[in-house]
C-alpha cells in the first residue's frame, strides 16, 4: 500500500530558532494522525509546512496524487499546489473566521469550492450545499444566513462542510475543537469521526488536548522544541509513554 502522505526530514527555521526539525512520517489512507505538544513546540509550524502555508527550509512532503502518484509537494508549481489545496486537500482553521468568508452566506461558503472546480449549475450547487449543511447538522433554513449569525460551534461545522464538499482525501486541522465549549466539542468530535470513517479521510490534527486525540487520532506524534520526541499508536503513546517529556505531558492532565 502506498502512503497517502510521506514526510521526510522536514525542517523549518526562523533565523537561529528551530520551528520544526527533521520530521519524518508516513500517513496511510484512512489514518488520522494527531500531533500534540505544548505551545511553541512547533506543531503548528509543522502543520503549516505540510499544508504549504509556510515554506520549509528542507525536506520532502510527498503526496500520492490521483494523476501521477507520489509527488513532492514542495517541488510543485504554485498553481498545482493551489489546485491541490482546493481539491484533494482541506484545511480546517482553529478560528472559523480564518477559514470562512464571513460576508458570504452559509450556502455560498460551502459552494465556493464547487464553483472553484468548475460547477456552474446553481441548483446543483445549492443542493450539494444543502446536503452538506445537513451532514454537519446545520438546519436547512440557515442556508442563506451569514456565518456571523452562527454560534462558534456552528461556524466550525460550517467550516468543515466547506472543506469537505469536494471530497478531499487529506485534511489538515489546527486545533479544530479549540475555543469551543465542552458539549459542542463532543458533537464535533463525533461528527469528525463519522466523516473520517465514511469518506475514508486521512487527517493530520494538531491539538494540545490529549482527550481529543485519544478519541480522534489513530496515531500520535509528540513534539517538543521542534523535534518529534515520540510517535506511535495513540493509546500506546498515552498509556505507555516512553519519553520523559511525554510522561510529563500525560501526567500533567487534570482529571475531570
Amino acid at each position: 500500500m502506498t502512503p497517502l502522505l510521506q514526510v521526510k526530514g522536514l525542517t523549518k527555521r526562523y533565523g537561529a530558532r528551530i520551528g520544526c526539525a527533521d520530521v519524518s512520517f508516513d500517513l496511510y489512507p484512512g489514518e488520522v494522525m494527531g500531533i500534540v505538544g505544548e505551545s511553541g513546540s512547533g506543531k503548528s509550524t509543522l502543520l503549516n509546512c505540510l499544508a504549504g502555508h509556510l515554506e520549509a527550509d528542507s525536506g520532502h512532503v510527498m503526496f500520492d496524487t490521483r494523476a501521477e502518484g507520489l509527488r513532492d509537494v514542495r517541488a510543485m508549481s504554485e498553481p498545482e499546489r493551489r489546485m491541490l489545496a482546493r481539491t484533494d486537500w482541506a484545511f480546517v482553521h482553529q478560528n472559523p473566521r480564518d477559514g470562512l468568508r464571513m460576508g458570504v452566506s452559509a450556502g455560498g461558503n460551502v459552494g465556493e469550492r464547487l464553483m472553484a472546480v468548475g460547477a456552474r449549475h446553481y441548483g446543483d450547487i445549492r443542493a450539494q450545499a444543502q446536503d452538506w449543511l445537513g451532514r454537519v447538522e446545520i438546519a436547512a433554513d440557515r442556508i442563506d444566513d451569514r456565518p456571523t449569525a452562527f454560534s462558534g460551534g456552528m461556524q466550525q461545522r460550517l467550516q468543515i462542510a466547506r472543506n469537505l464538499v469536494t471530497g478531499p482525501r487529506l485534511v489538515f486541522m489546527d486545533e479544530p475543537t479549540g475555543g469551543l465549549d465542552v458539549s459542542v466539542q463532543a458533537r464535533l468530535l463525533d461528527l469528525l469521526r463519522g466523516l473520517v470513517r465514511e469518506m475514508g479521510l486521512s487527517a493530520v490534527i494538531v491539538t494540545h488536548d490529549l482527550a481529543v486525540v485519544r478519541l480522534l487520532a489513530h496515531r500520535l506524534m509528540v513534539m517538543k522544541s521542534g523535534h518529534v520526541v515520540e510517535a506511535g499508536l495513540t493509546d500506546q503513546v498515552l498509556d505507555d509513554p516512553q519519553h520523559g517529556y511525554t510522561q510529563l505531558l500525560v501526567s500533567s492532565v487534570l482529571q475531570a
Binding site: 489514518e31 463532543a186 458533537r187 468530535l189 463525533d190 485519544r214 478519541l215 489513530h218 499508536l233
Partner: peptide
C-alpha cells in the same frame, strides 16, 4: 508498525477492557 496493529485490532483482535472510552453524546 502502527497501521498493522490498527488493522489487526479492526479485524482480528478484540478487547473488552474494564473501562468504556467513547465520544460523549454518541
Amino acid at each position: 508498525a502502527p497501521r498493522e496493529v490498527l488493522a489487526l485490532r479492526r479485524a482480528t483482535l478484540g478487547y473488552v477492557s474494564q473501562f468504556l472510552r467513547v465520544v460523549p453524546r454518541v
